[in-house]
Design a protein around this nucleic acid. Structure first.
Length: 292
RNA sequence: ACUUACGAAGAAA
């Protein structure tokens, strides 16, 4: 069973669900009965392809076969429904798991919270956040990051920054995800300068690093942060600064991807720099990126 | 050290 599960997980992670399902029926033929691991591996793959209904069927089937769903199995189903925006169904399984005596954990909450954030229902998201505090399920960096991102995307920079502060006060260390949400949010709010400043300080100032409680090995300057900054600069008409960032990517061990090229191209178009557009196009082919 | 399963970030459509 262990070997089969490992194999199933491998196929699923390689995006070959159909092969995994073949292997699964082979298991059934051999009389090897699935367990919660088997169930969660296949369900996750179904959800990843947007086939949440089929994940639920499998859930019911295995449930009927006498495998009791554990917290991971429930989490996958709940997250699947959250990602497709069906919060009602997600909540249904959330209460079902509670009735089954399966305790929701921080991952359950972060799926639900992110689901509400993506739907723009920050009130519901914040309510669940308070619930974690009440139930003594410590909110972690993922929950805070989802909420910060949600607040920014729903045009509430103040709430986002307040949560960021609270998170640090709670001694939760922001990671690269957290920082990229902050930077992207600031940029989209037209505060590119603040974003650059925050990053610059984070790179150089031990004091800020200490305040953010990150160690020196944590680099926030990943490709996503660069993209946000470049887009912010472009929208601000500062295509030269953006191009400069773009050209220094390599010095930081990053390589430009399709999205970055798109952002910079768009910037040149905005500034009507047709010659630069042509040059970029050539560069793009040179580094082996095909326009999509 | 990790080692069968679950949650958060960038362009466009």
């Amino acid at each position: 069973l262990f070997v089969y599960n490992t194999l199933l997980d491998g196929y699923c992670k390689a995006g070959k669900l159909s092969v995994a399902l073949d292997v699964y029926s082979q298991m059934e033929r051999k009389g090897i009965s699935p367990d919660a691991f088997t169930c969660s591996i296949l369900m996750k793959s179904y959800c990843g392809e947007g086939r949440v209904e089929e994940a639920e069927s499998l859930f019911q089937k295995i449930n009927n076969a006498g495998v009791s769903p554990n917290v991971v199995v429930y989490n996958i189903l709940i997250d699947g429904y959250c990602k497709e925006g069906s919060m009602e169904k997600a909540l249904k399984f959330y209460s079902q798991m509670t009735d089954d005596g399966v305790r929701p954990n921080i991952i359950t909450y972060s799926s639900l919270i992110d689901g509400y954030c993506k739907r723009g229902d920050m009130e519901a998201a914040m309510e669940l956040y308070s619930e974690t505090v009440v139930k003594a399920i410590e909110p972690d960096v993922v929950v805070y990051t989802a909420l910060i991102d949600g607040h920014f995307k729903n045009d509430n920079m103040q709430a986002a920054l307040t949560l960021f502060r609270e998170m640090i006060e709670a001694s939760i260390t922001p990671n690269a995800f957290t920082i990229s949400c902050l930077i992207d949010g600031l940029c989209k709010d037209g505060r590119v300068n603040d974003a650059v400043k925050l990053l610059g300080e984070g790179q150089t100032s031990p004091a800020l690093r200490k305040m953010l409680q990150v160690d020196s090995s944590c680099s926030f300057l990943n490709g996503i942060v660069y993209t946000s900054l470049m887009q912010g600069l472009c929208k601000d008409g500062r295509i030269l600064r953006a191009s400069k960032l773009f050209s220094e990517l390599r010095c930081h061990g990053l390589k430009p991807d399709t999205i970055m090229f798109y952002v910079i191209l768009q910037g040149h178009f905005r500034s009507k720099n047709l010659p630069d557009v042509m040059m970029l196009q050539a560069d793009m082919l040179k580094v082996g990126i095909m326009p999509n």
